[in-house]
Design a protein around this nucleic acid. Sequence first.
DNA 1: ACAAAAGTGTTGCGTATACACCCATGT
DNA 2: ACATGGGTGTATACGCAACACTTTTGT
Lengths: 248, 248
Amino acid sequence: MYSQKFLSSISIDCVIFGFHSNELKVLLLKMKESDGWMLPGGFVGLDQDLNKEASTVLEYRTGLADIFLRQFYVFGNVARAKTDHIDHLLAKGAIDPKAAKWFEQRFVSIGYYALVEYSKVKEPRLDYISEACTWMPMNELPPLLLDHGEILDKAHETLKKELYSQPIGLNLLPEEFTMTELQSLYETILQRTIDRRNFRRKMLSMKVLGDTGKRRTGLGHRSPILYTFDRAAYQTALEKGFQASAFF
Amino acid sequence: MYSQKFLSSISIDCVIFGFHSNELKVLLLKMKESDGWMLPGGFVGLDQDLNKEASTVLEYRTGLADIFLRQFYVFGNVARAKTDHIDHLLAKGAIDPKAAKWFEQRFVSIGYYALVEYSKVKEPRLDYISEACTWMPMNELPPLLLDHGEILDKAHETLKKELYSQPIGLNLLPEEFTMTELQSLYETILQRTIDRRNFRRKMLSMKVLGDTGKRRTGLGHRSPILYTFDRAAYQTALEKGFQASAFF
DNA sequence: ACAAAAGTGTTGCGTATACACCCATGT
DNA sequence: ACATGGGTGTATACGCAACACTTTTGT
């Protein structure tokens, strides 16, 4: 049973962001026998490191390993554990009654957010209490169960902040992309427009982009340059961060 | 017993920062029957909110309520729970053997850091396994048990980062202070020197300082102006943050 | 008078912002 | 040829960084 395999009272919730057709999307689970959606999550194996377990959840859902994944907040209010929907699931037979005790307990949930390349995720995997696992656009989110709406908001807020001190995009875009696509990603996350020319200058000054020499053709206009991320430079920028000393 | 009162597997560790005689200090517990020191911490009551419980720990140790207190990271590696020192404490009789099971379990610990006004903390309170609770300077830390050294480092690192996007000082300085004292706090946290004139200009431009009209006298030189924080402005700056849009 | 720290202003430089024109491509 | 988006440059403003002299106070 659960209690012999997992640490009790602790859960992990993952906000998995993807970017597709100019929209920021999140991977959500549609629960069986319920109108509500949830964030994919899991529990912590008795002999597993916490962060490792979070990437296991991620890998299970997306099939992707070595992905940008980061803790952003711990949700530990008593009130978050209104288990109405668990009762509902039990009543409907979606959860094994023997596991009821486990699911009815109060959980302190550690929130992680991940950035993944939309196109690399093939068929998000289901578990036995979910009837669907799909990308949902951030703009038109379905109703979320428990406090998952709040968790999602906080993740988005964190992502916005991180954008200012770190490069972002390596994990969200395909291998090769145009400057406009990169800008579109930034605009989507920040929810505002950015001047094209200034954006380009700023990005190039970061020295994390490599020009592939190639161009994307077939559009009804001038062919844009295809860029890649310079992995080494990107990694350095991630670790060191920007503008940490742009003060005093 | 513990397991009837607290969520299992979860602990809270608090890094409580204070500032005194130009040194950044941390409140640490000296353990009975051991050479090691620990961060003050606690567990989460079954019917208590997580953040609330963290401020309970803080209040218990310092006697202060309504203090700057923030989550900064969750420490959840399996390896962090080397319980050698627990065995030691048990052997020495410092822990009730009936509680052994509780203390021997693996904990995932939620790290909080707090900023408190050194002079407001009278006698840090002890518990039954600590023989001392005192302010220790960050520069000359004693040996810490478990992964508490790592936790402390991460807290300090976080504090440094936050300094760039938020005002800091309201919780660390006395009600009235000179510009030099404020600068000294910043220099101590950042571990570097700052130009006096630039610092003053920057601080005043933040509009969070109020001139009390008073001056500190009795020093062998020109009497410096005493400032206070404008609480309302400070609070706004905390919530909104600085330079969030100093990019694009 | 002297020592020690506080108060004050200016200049340069780099970076963010605002803004407009020409270029390449597919239809 | 034309429409559509891509590529490029310049001028301005603001903020950070560097830097030196005068003022106040206690001894």
